[in-house]
Design a binder for these strands. Sequence first.
DNA 1: AAATGATATGTTATGTTATTACGCTTGCGG
DNA 2: CCGCAAGCGTAATAACATAACATATCATTT
Lengths: 137, 137
Amino acid sequence: MAHSHDMPTDLTRNQELVLGTLTASSGPLSAYDILDRLRTEGLRAPLQVYRALEKLVDRGLAHRLESLNAFVACADAHCHRKGLIAFAICEGCGKVDEFADAVIESRLGAWAHAEGFKVERTTMEIRGRCAQCLKAA
Amino acid sequence: MAHSHDMPTDLTRNQELVLGTLTASSGPLSAYDILDRLRTEGLRAPLQVYRALEKLVDRGLAHRLESLNAFVACADAHCHRKGLIAFAICEGCGKVDEFADAVIESRLGAWAHAEGFKVERTTMEIRGRCAQCLKAA
DNA sequence: AAATGATATGTTATGTTATTACGCTTGCGG
DNA sequence: CCGCAAGCGTAATAACATAACATATCATTT
């Protein structure tokens, strides 16, 4: 297998370029970071990147990290939108770990049900230091 | 009692103005929203607001909503920084509900412990519709 | 093939959010 | 009084995001 991120075949050129850039990166990238890396491919304007990102995020192929104003490729080729995802972001090396927790999801659901709140989207981001960076320090 | 948010007495003038503006608002405000409301008080530059916000957030008197790039006064005069706080943000009316959940906090702690990740700060924001807005629709 | 509609694209300009850099002021402990 | 830390004011700029408009691409229907 070439790589674990088998890219969907129905992406447009811009979407493919943007997803490729995210996948190749070891950490989150801002839209402008992505743009800079794709100038050689002919991209010129922020909007070209933002539009591609919007589609990718909608499809669950990429995630937006709100606390960073940046984006990452989805770590799990199969996760596509099933349930709440939490992110652990290391301030040291910039690496992002993506995980799901059914208990947290159900607690949130319980709270929402009790309040009559209809959940549309949940953001959950942990900032701190990963094990590797702690060891190095 | 004048109001439930007994403002600390050791705030600087700018901090007091900013916190007062947040407290008076029914919803989150961006730094620039705050600035606009404080021009009459003599504030002129974004930095004056950002500096005040930084201190207020550090002290737990205000919170930053990452998914909105905006700020709210802490809803609970006594919450000052004890534990993880979640926010439910209504897309309809803009109201923000603030709550804590010990189970979620402990699940997060367990994950972090298992991974050797040192948590410094956690962001948790739910976007959706509040009961009142759902009823109105 | 022509007409239609939905989706994607390219480009310019602009809007919004946040920080850097610099210098002055104020208050407090030594 | 001196020195230092914290706060303040101002200007400039950086970083992030969208509006508005014109074109293009492609499948579907006529």
